[in-house]
Amino acid sequence: MRKFIYTYFLVLGFIIVNHLQVVAQELRCNVKINASSNQIASNVGTINDTQIFTEMQRAMTQFMNNTRWTNDNFKDSEKINCNIVITITAIPGVGQYEAQAIIQSSRPVYGTDYESVVMSFVDRAFRFTYNPGEQMNYNEAAFTSNLVSMLSFYANIIIGLDYDTFSKVGGTAYLQKAAAISTLASQESNDDSWKPNSDTRSRYWLGENLNSPQMQSFREGLYTYYRVAIDNYAANGDQARSQILTFLNNVKQINQIRPNSIWTNTFFDTKSNELINIFSEGNPQDKVKAYNLLVELDPTKADRYRKLTR
């Protein structure tokens, strides 16, 4: 009897653990708060208690990782790796914070231990309120706070772009959710970064670009870049480079319709080093083609791309 009971609980434990692995939340997000008192302009006096930033960091991390963002089941190994680094720049009042945030996500490359960065975006107007013990809950139909809206917006952007890299425009539903969050926040908050008259590198324009029909072929190209080319790069580098050149030529056509778009700039900010490494291993003809395209599409990094001509 004891042997039967032991076997029963062993099997039950295995089922529970296996189930938890299958329905694990979608993100493996690392949130870091940088808050050096000598770098912060504060209207509330000297910052002596840094515990608030530790709690803030923990609360944001738990919100990103414990919220169920999709109806899909994720194994633990399938979670999307992402980082949010928030640098506090000012504290205009009690519980009020102004900051810059870097939002980055990556995905594994098939058959390797290499992680390819999918998104690296700098939010220069990351403004929010936070008070110790504050509950953060996601409700896609309601605005609760600017902080919850910003984190929810980026969670859906991260998931949408990740899905795009595995199936053609597979992340549409989540990019549309991000746009809906942006629209609601623009109506309910005083944050101009949600509005169309904001800085062209704002959250509004990031969401607009990723949902614009004019940019759909760019999103379709993400599948070509990652799933077709990068995932097969180790097996056939020449073919992968040829496919990436086709993708870059497509981006060139898109750039004529939407010049200097935030998503085009963000893509090359994210991928420039990777593209240089990929084409550095190619034949001279592909290097020249890549150099000419990259300098035209991303002229601010021309000096960096010049490595391809040496």
Score class of each variant (00 low, 15 high):
N197I: 10
C82M: 11
Q62V: 10
Q100R: 07
R227G: 05
E140F: 15
Y174F: 06
Q216N: 15
F166M: 11
D72C: 11
L147R: 01
D164N: 04
A229D: 04
K75R: 09
M136T: 06
L297T: 04
V17C: 08
N139I: 09
K252W: 06
S202F: 12
T183N: 15
P299W: 00
F121V: 06
C29T: 06
D191K: 05
T67Y: 03
N139Y: 10
A234C: 15
Y130H: 07
N255I: 02
I254D: 03
S42A: 08
S167E: 13
K3A: 11
K252S: 15
N34K: 10
T129S: 11
S261E: 03
N83F: 08
L10F: 14
W194G: 04
P196E: 13
F121N: 02
D164Y: 00
T61I: 10
Y226R: 01
S105P: 06
R219S: 01
Y138G: 12
S42V: 02
E220G: 09
T50C: 08
I16R: 01
G171C: 05
T300C: 13
R304A: 04
G171K: 00
S198R: 03
K252L: 13
I88Y: 00
L12E: 07
I86P: 01
V295L: 05
P299A: 04
I33C: 08
N255E: 08
K168P: 06
W205S: 03
Y204S: 02
W205H: 02
R28P: 00
G160D: 07
N131F: 11
L210D: 04
L308Y: 04
R304C: 03
Y204A: 00
L293W: 00
R310N: 12
Q253M: 10
A41F: 07
L275Q: 03
P132C: 08
F279V: 01
L10W: 13
N65A: 07
A142W: 12
R127Y: 11
R241Q: 04
L275E: 04
Q239V: 12
A234D: 14
N73H: 06
W69A: 00
D231A: 14
S198F: 03
N34S: 14
N81A: 12
N83I: 12
F247P: 05
T183S: 14
